[in-house]
Amino acid sequence: MASSDTALAAGQRTRGLAPFLRSQMRNIAPFLTLIFLSGFFALASPSFATLDNLGNILTQVSVTGIIAVGLTFVILCAEIDLSIASIANVTGIAVAYFTLQESYVNIPNIPLPGAAAILLAILLCAFLGLVNALGLTVIGIPSFIMTLAMMQIAAGISALLVRGQIAYKVPGVITTLGSGSLGGIPWIVIVAAIMLLGGHLVLTYTRFGRYVYMVGGNREAAEYSGLNVKLILGAVMVISAVCSGIGGMLGVAHFGSAQQNEFDTYLLDSIAAVVVGGTSLFGGRGGIGNTIVGLFVLGVLNNGLDHVNIDSFLKILIRGLILLAALVINVYAQRLREKAVE
């Protein structure tokens, strides 16, 4: 500790390699974690480091990945969205609700053509995102509380739609994208990859992406630069809800059923993926690249723990501890960077 402090002092004078590494800590630490975890599981279990298992991991993180694209935008703006899993769930249920179900499914639903079902489901999640956006920007409810309410609202809509039953059928396109594959690669992995790439391009190369970083970096300054901060915050809430909705529809197809509480674990997983990847909780730093690393850390961890002989109840604790470690690094990295700049 003492030696790193002196290195810090020296680095500020010279601006050599050390300060560069420190300012990049949020990018380096998750990568090292990933390498360490992969190495550990590869040594601990012969079945881990196989091509088949890589495919498993990719498939397992796909739904989380799709949801995390939108969440990355939100966290970059120093906001949070706790309604992602609920919105994913209600959108998945909605697309099934508007699809003709087998006769044994006892839900009073409204069958429509596939395209209409998908359109309505997307409109639903976009609308819920818009409600989040209005609550946050027009009324001024902190996003933490606003999306907590939305979490309940979306869960309530889900409950009303399925009434404790399970629906199985979704439109054909969704079935293909959720559970089919193209040349051996699952469609859901391809969709996740495309969405992550799209998110990256928007954040890096568009004016809107720049605004997201600037609003997250210093909201006051963004306002004093004449940016429409509320519009940008509103937009990221809608983007987050729509990404969640797409993840929800494909997830339902992937699992083969649409029911209440199906996506509950995805809330924590998505937040963890973004934060473990190194996107700053204070906004303005990080991006989709970080989220991808975070997804792999989480995927390797979840998958790897299944390959080693470990008490399944202990796994939950281990996941919690890893998340805590990531949070510590996240906050610490921010502080180091601020020191390096000032």
Binding site: Y205, T206, R207, G209, R210, Y211, Y213, M214, G217, N218, E220, A221, A222, Y224, S225, G226, L227, G284, R285, R337, E338, V341, E342
Partner: peptide
């Protein structure tokens, strides 16, 4: 009104971005 962790050029261009780029930076 400034973004301390961003480069100088992004600080200068922020208020005119909409004049120089419609969509792409």
């Amino acid at each position: 009104m400034l973004f301390h962790q961003e480069p100088v050029y992004k600080n200068i261009s922020i208020s005119i971005l909409d004049r120089i780029s419609a969509l792409l930076l």
